[in-house]
Design a binder for these strands. Structure first.
Length: 310
RNA sequence: GGUGCCAUAGCUCAGUUGGUAGAGCAACGGACUGAAAAUCCGUGUGUCCCUAGUUCGAUUCUUGGUGGCACCA
């Protein structure tokens, strides 16, 4: 096993961060646990919804048994009422991994949130926090007037960003403008286009399978969530539906159902469809990174061999 | 058994006065730097049921089938 390799020189063998990604429902949790057991290490979650302790069933968070099978980090560590973002994740995940590397050769990262994985592996630029008033005012203006005026502001305030961002995507425009207004410096000036160096190796493993089979798994899992009490879980957070953490597949559809906009069967159908679309978006993200090694979920032995070769 | 109606995309259907076709939903592809399970962009994927006619040309008209539905027996 890698951890037993003799250190023939004074040079320390570099630690390895094993990153497991893939579409929702593919079996990442199970794979991560097997790898953690195999390499005698712990798991850091990179799932932007499993952080929230109130969201268990609908996010398919690891069960009590799974949590007992291998130590997990960043699962249920915050509340839906807390503010959290990808920069905070980068900080947290780096801190935890460096703690693990004190005593372990490998650490496992598992999750489906591409941006978060990217922040951990390549870093994300250090951009000052936007003050709340600037953000709220801008959002209010957007809701009142639409995006045209704000887009025009961006053109004036930060022509470089204007040339780069997706001008049809309000969130991107709002972000660039709020940073510019809040800091007094153009958003583009914070973008370095540089990867941060990491003091460890990274092995990226992605899981995928035949699309139809994956979709069948997703459908089955949604039915399972319903029988495990998803409707009750969603009802318990209904009053907080405006929170960003609840703008999530499995929750937003049931909120609409509670509002009387459609029946439960339709809500379930929509959860399945939106989960499929989410899975596709994840695949788009992960296939872009050419350094990723792709496997079927049952190819555990091949994956172990690959890691041992690193 | 008889009569009538229908058969076009994965589904529900529109349409072509004869020049090989388009909506909705589903699906597919992509982008992505602090809301990311979010947000945004792009793409019709088709033996127009089969057969034989008429025609320069048939998915469209005609004949005969096949399947479905309805009504009458």
């Amino acid at each position: 096993m890698t951890s037993t390799i003799l250190k023939t020189t004074s040079q320390k063998i570099k630690n390895n961060l094993i990153v497991v990604v893939g579409p929702t429902g593919i079996g990442k949790t199970t794979m991560a646990i097997k790898l953690a057991q195999q390499f005698e290490t712990e798991i850091i979650s990179a799932d932007s919804r499993q952080f929230y302790r109130e969201l268990k069933i609908g996010t398919a968070a690891p069960t009590t048994d799974e949590l007992a099978a291998a130590p997990h980090h960043l699962i249920g560590n915050i509340s839906i009422h807390d503010y959290y973002n990808v920069f905070m994740f980068e900080t947290d995940a780096l801190r935890i991994s460096s703690e693990l590397f004190q005593t372990k050769q490998n650490a496992i990262v598992v999750g489906g949130s591409g941006l978060y994985i990217d922040a951990l592996c390549n870093g994300i630029d250090d951009i000052p926090d936007v003050d709340e008033k600037t953000r709220n005012d801008l959002v209010a203006r957007f809701e009142r007037e639409g995006i045209d005026g704000i887009r025009f502001d961006l053109k004036r305030l930060d022509p470089e960003s204007y040339a780069q961002v997706d001008l049809k995507n309000p969130k991107r425009i709002l972000r660039a403008v709020e940073v510019t207004l809040s800091t007094g410096k153009p958003y583009s000036s914070f973008r370095t286009n540089q990867k941060k160096k990491r003091p460890f190796e990274i092995t990226k493993i992605a899981l995928n399978m035949n699309r139809q089979e994956l979709y069948n798994r997703i459908d089955t899992r949604v039915d399972q969530m319903i029988s495990e009490g998803l409707v009750e879980e969603v009802r318990s957070v209904y009053e907080f539906r405006k929170l960003n953490a609840l703008n999530t597949v499995g929750y937003k559809e049931l909120f609409e159902h509670f509002d009387g906009n459609y029946d439960l069967d339709r809500a379930i159908e929509l959860i399945k469809r939106n989960s499929r679309r989410y899975a596709k978006r994840q695949l788009s993200w992960f296939t872009r990174d050419k350094s990723t090694h792709w496997f079927q979920p049952d190819e555990i032995n091949k994956i172990i061999d690959l890691i041992n070769q690193q």
